[in-house]
Design a protein around this nucleic acid. Structure first.
Lengths: 261, 261
DNA sequence: GAAACCCTAACGATGCGTAAATGTGT
DNA sequence: CACACATTTACGCATCGTTAGGGTTT
């Protein structure tokens, strides 16, 4: 008698057991359980023993779910989308595309960093340097690449293209050394209370400018971008450390100002 | 006395409390706890009260962790990497780059599907069709785009470029209708036990070939790719359903064979 | 009786955010 | 006394995979 009811229902529209339905739709039975518990896709019926029974309409809904999942929507949002107004789909799709685009940018940045690190490994393996040094440089390159990603917003596309063409990890390494040396000398000059107007201070200021030009390629617009970057301290990432002290910067600024005198 | 010990340790190398260390390194205190529990970064010491104390060396290690996380390594793997041989870094980096590349491909596929869906929404909004129809088409387009992603591996880059240039969602819709109509007629012909050599069967076979040519653009190499795709049944995704029945396919094949007779 | 399904319940993995409850003292 | 910071413990999130234990029978 009870079976008769189930058969009667089955006549109305073929009902599938979990595994059939799963094969039909390309998902696993576990996934069906999951969606059931989330209230995302409740089976149309149950057998007296509690077995889930899915209908054709369930299949349609599941296909919608799978399609929306394909384009990256989380299940929670899919549940809302499936009962929301279609007129909002346009905006929703656009937002989702932007979300994915952002993820893609991050992936690209990471891949960029890896490529740079791989280049360092290549270069160094020939020199057979100590392990810890190789590793340290890898980390450095990754951090640097990341910093550059962040700094990108201060430059235009053309400026970035020019930078990429000119600025290699080797140049970066050389520049870091030069900056370290120069900053040491500036600190000494400040320690000796040298006048910013002195000939020595002027030569330091000149070297300072040369290092900057080495980075900007002498391009005024790029230089402006760099200045904007340093001025926008409020938006620096927490792990960005100004490479020079404020005193050193002030000293050089005074030296440059004194030049005209 | 006990404090004296802590101070003594602090003299050896400045030690930081959790929140100082967190600010210094750009992570949260919670993250430090997490890494501690994972055994990824144990603080160098503890105060008598159990407060974590971090040293400069800890900072170095944390920077390494952060850098490796930046390029997408999971924490578990980072722990292994930090105690593994540097000589394997090259291969590890390459694998990681490939992993990220795969993720990027999936993102691209999803964005592609969204873009196609957006175009459908645009086109349909003008016709002011019923909501359910709009939504159904969106889902269809997403599924189709996904199928195309999967099918890509059967074609060369040039073939795909040509396909993209020629094959629009509109053409796809038209083609689906045409195929449905043709398949109906073929099924009827089979039902009537028509001879594959009959004139009617020949015309059906001709239309069949025309539809295929419409997709391949008449290019023989693309046609071969398509045949490879259908031959590689073992690798079809679970949700790919052959658009035609085996009987229909056999009937057309016989009709083509009979043509020469 | 056995094969082949079904069910629910619950842990695992990923990387912390966010309390809660409680102790310390930079 | 109170403020700021510390500690441990544990739930939450997202999406199922994977047993485990125990019924049902397309």
């Amino acid at each position: 008698l009870i079976e008769g009811v189930a058969v009667g229902a089955a006549i109305a529209s073929k009902l599938y057991q979990a595994h059939e339905f799963a094969r039909l739709s390309g998902v696993t039975v576990r996934t069906l359980h999951h969606y059931d518990r989330l209230g995302l896709l409740k089976p149309s019926g149950r057998t007296p023993a509690g077995y889930r029974l899915y209908s054709q309409r369930d299949l349609l809904r599941l296909e919608q779910i799978v399609a929306l999942k394909l384009i990256g929507f989380p299940l929670k949002q899919i549940r809302e989308l499936l009962q929301s107004d279609v007129s909002q789909m346009s905006a929703t799709l656009r937002r989702q595309r932007e979300t994915l685009a952002e993820k893609r940018r991050q992936l690209d940045a990471a891949m960029n960093a890896i490529e740079n690190a791989e280049r360092v490994v290549q270069d160094i393996n020939d020199g057979s340097e100590p392990d810890w040094d190789v590793f340290r440089k890898i980390i450095e390159v990754i951090e640097m690449t990341n910093n550059m990603e962040w700094a990108k917003k201060y430059y235009t596309e053309e400026q970035l293209a020019a930078l990429r063409a000119r600025w290699s990890p080797e140049l970066q390494a050389k520049a870091e050394q030069d900056w370290a040396q120069l900053l040491r000398e500036v600190a000494e000059a400040i320690g000796r209370s040298e006048s910013p107007a002195s000939a020595h201070a002027q030569s330091l200021a000149e070297r300072w400018q040369k290092l900057i030009d080495g980075f900007t390629g002498g391009d005024a617009a790029t230089y402006q971008g760099l200045k904007n970057l340093y001025a926008d301290e409020a938006n620096w990432p927490r792990d960005f450390k100004q490479p020079f002290s404020n005193e050193a910067c002030a000293f050089i600024a005074q030296a440059k100002a004194a030049k005209g005198v």
